[in-house]
Design a protein around this nucleic acid. Structure first.
Lengths: 147, 147
DNA sequence: AATGAAAGGAATCCCCC
DNA sequence: GGGGGATTCCTTTCATT
């Protein structure tokens, strides 16, 4: 990871579909060594993949909610069971194991408030060991620059 | 947005750098109409862009924290000043205006805990109208499938 | 709207520096 | 590690159905 590699990942983070030819020009290389560096960054896991960024509302994920979850018990079996189950729930984007007032902070995206009510009452509350759920419903999201 | 469009965005969300030729094959079209559909999805804003997904630790963002922020005052000027300033802070990925115990939930990514201490004490606490900050430090993140 | 052909461009590989 | 050039594949456009 030298300066050129850092430039490459910065450009690809902002535009993941840029052509190798233009990427090379932007970082001051010719296409051959540029492509070699990109492949190496992919192989070593610095670049994990590429994704299209979608309009949430257009694909049925217009409501974003963060849900703080506390568990009743914290034995290994309880934790494993919860973690396995929660990432399989439709609408769960990420599940963060956090310090603080909650055990987990869930990033959830669903169509609308009725869909979240269903998620909350019929999916999440029924998971093993879930003691309490606190929901933070997103009204607006501001993004920082290129991300 | 018909079924084919939904397939296209699903494939591109999982692999944003797939070639148009292979994308076409996967959704059962020939390349020409497939490309036209992708362009239309981009122009109408359903596809907002493409990004490389990076290993956070490899690019100096090894620590993810969610910070619940309460403001002292909620007048329009206070809110606007806070929102303008917070997204400019280095490390702030997204700023969610939420319902519940906090006014905002910040998604922050920094190098490590000392960097977060600096962010918390020297950047965030000094913003206009910030009354209190509650930090949820992520120890582990589980992702749901393709996202 | 989809197809298919054709031109132009890009990705990729090999070899040299 | 970087560069140049050849090959192959892809992208893109346009005429056609």
């Amino acid at each position: 990871m030298d300066e050129v590699d850092r430039s490459i990942v910065a450009v690809l983070e902002a535009d993941g579909r840029i052509s190798n030819a233009e990427l090379a020009a932007r970082v001051g290389l010719s296409p051959s060594p540029c492509l070699r560096r990109v492949r190496r960054l992919e192989e070593t896991g610095v670049i994990r993949g590429y994704r299209a960024v979608l309009d949430p509302a257009a694909v049925g994920r217009g409501l974003r909610v963060f849900a703080g979850v506390r568990l009743v018990r914290h034995g290994r079996a309880d934790v494993v069971a919860f973690e396995r189950a929660v990432v399989r729930l439709p609408g769960v984007v990420q599940c963060h194991h956090v310090t603080g007032d909650y055990d987990y902070l869930l990033h959830v995206e669903v169509a609308d408030l009725p869909a979240y009510e269903d998620f909350h009452a019929n999916r999440l509350a029924g998971l093993p060991s879930v003691a309490a759920v606190t929901s933070y419903v997103t009204m607006k999201t501001l993004s920082a620059g290129s991300r």
